[in-house]
C-alpha cells in the first residue's frame, strides 16, 4: 500500500490544489447537487479505468474500450426495451463486454500481436458497425424500473458511486493480495523472467483483456442506469480518458507498476476538469490545453521520480 500511496502523490497534489482553488472561489462545486451527479457520472469511467490499469500493468493497452462501452450500452438498452429485467440485462452486458475483451485478448495474447494494434482494429470495427446499424438513433424510453436501478435518484446516485468504489477496492486488493495480482505484476515487469518461474504470462494477459471487457460492460450498465435513453455515440473518447487517467495516476506504460489509488485520483482529476472550468469561468477552448499539460506534467514528474531507470 505504501508504494501505491507514493505513486499517487503527484496526482493527489494536483487534485488537492484544484480542490483548494474550487473550495475558495467556487464552493458550490462541493454542494450535494453538483457532487452527487458528478460522482455518479464518474463512476462508470472509474470502473473502466480499473480494468485498464490492470491491463497496463501487464504491459498491454486497449484502445477499443470506447466502442465496447457503446456496444454494451446499446445492447443493454435494446434488451431492456424488449422487456428483459435489469437483473438479466446487466449480467448480459457484462458478458458481452467480457466476450469483446476476450476477442482482443485472444488476438493479442494468443497470437502474440501487439494489443495497441489489435484494439485499433476492433475499435474501428465496433464503432463503425454500431454507426451503420443505429445511424445515430437513440435507444429510447427505457422502462422506469431501469433508471437508478429502481432505487430512486438520490439513493441511486450514491449506489452507482459506491458500486464503482467497491470495484476499485476489489481490483486494488486483488492486485496486491491475490496470486493473480502478483502474476499480473510479474508478467508486466519482465515477461521472460515471469515465464521461467512458471507464471502463465499469456493466460494472464488474456485474462486482463477479458477482465477489462467485463468491467467495461459493467460500466456501460452503470451509465445506462443514469438515464432513460442510450446515445449510441456514448463512450467516444473514453479510451483516451482512462489511459490518460492511468498514466497520470502512476501506472507505468512499460508495465509492472501501478496502483488503483493513483488511477482513481487520476480519473477524478480529469473528470473534474471540465465542470471546474464552468465554475471558474474559464473559456472552454482552454480545456484541451490543460488536459495535455496535465499529462505532460505527469510525464515530467514521472521522469524526475525515477531518474536512474533506463528508458530504452
Amino acid at each position: 500500500m505504501s508504494t501505491d500511496l507514493r505513486r499517487a502523490r503527484p496526482v493527489a497534489l494536483v487534485l488537492g490544489v484544484l480542490a483548494v482553488i474550487l473550495a475558495v472561489t467556487a464552493p458550490g462545486f462541493f454542494s450535494r447537487a453538483q457532487l452527487a451527479p458528478f460522482l455518479a457520472g464518474t463512476a462508470p469511467v472509474l470502473v473502466v479505468a480499473c480494468g485498464m490499469a490492470v491491463l497496463m500493468v501487464t504491459r498491454e493497452v486497449d484502445v477499443s474500450v470506447g466502442s465496447q462501452f457503446a456496444l454494451c450500452s446499446v445492447l443493454l438498452g435494446l434488451l431492456l426495451g424488449e422487456g428483459c429485467p435489469p437483473a438479466l440485462g446487466i449480467p448480459a452486458a457484462v458478458a458481452a463486454g467480457a466476450l469483446l475483451g476476450a476477442v482482443n485478448g485472444a488476438l493479442a495474447a494468443g497470437l502474440r500481436l501487439p494489443g495497441l494494434v489489435v484494439t485499433l482494429g476492433t475499435l474501428a470495427i465496433g464503432r463503425e458497425a454500431l454507426r451503420w446499424a443505429r445511424e445515430g438513433r437513440f435507444v429510447q424510453d427505457l422502462p422506469p424500473s431501469v433508471q437508478w436501478l429502481g432505487l430512486g435518484q438520490s439513493l441511486g446516485q450514491w449506489a452507482l458511486a459506491l458500486a464503482a468504489l467497491a470495484v476499485a477496492t476489489a481490483v486494488s486488493l486483488g492486485l496486491q493480495g491475490l496470486m493473480a495480482g502478483r502474476w499480473v505484476h510479474a508478467a508486466g515487469s519482465d515477461p521472460a523472467a515471469a515465464a521461467t518461474v512458471g507464471v502463465p504470462v499469456r493466460r494472464v494477459t488474456f485474462g486482463a483483456f477479458t477482465l477489462l471487457g467485463a468491467l467495461t460492460g459493467l460500466a456501460a450498465a452503470l451509465n445506462v442506469a443514469r438515464f432513460t435513453d442510450v446515445d449510441p455515440k456514448t463512450g467516444a473518447g473514453l479510451e483516451m480518458q482512462v489511459i490518460a487517467a492511468a498514466l497520470i495516476g502512476g501506472v507505468s506504460i512499460e508495465g509492472g507498476r501501478g496502483g488503483i489509488l493513483g488511477v482513481s485520483l487520476g480519473v477524478l482529476l480529469l473528470a473534474a476538469l471540465s465542470p471546474a472550468l464552468v465554475f471558474l469561468g474559464i473559456p472552454p477552448e482552454w480545456e484541451r490545453v490543460l488536459q495535455g499539460a496535465i499529462v505532460l506534467a505527469s510525464v515530467a514528474g514521472g521522469t524526475r521520480r525515477a531518474p536512474g531507470r533506463p528508458t530504452p
Partner: peptide
C-alpha cells in the same frame, strides 16, 4: 457557452455544472 462533443452524456454533465455554478 460549453461544448458537449455531440454527446448526450457530456451535455448532461455540462448542464449539471452550469446549473450548480
Amino acid at each position: 457557452l460549453r461544448p458537449c462533443d455531440d454527446l448526450k452524456d457530456r451535455a448532461f454533465a455540462e448542464t449539471t455544472a452550469i446549473l450548480n455554478a
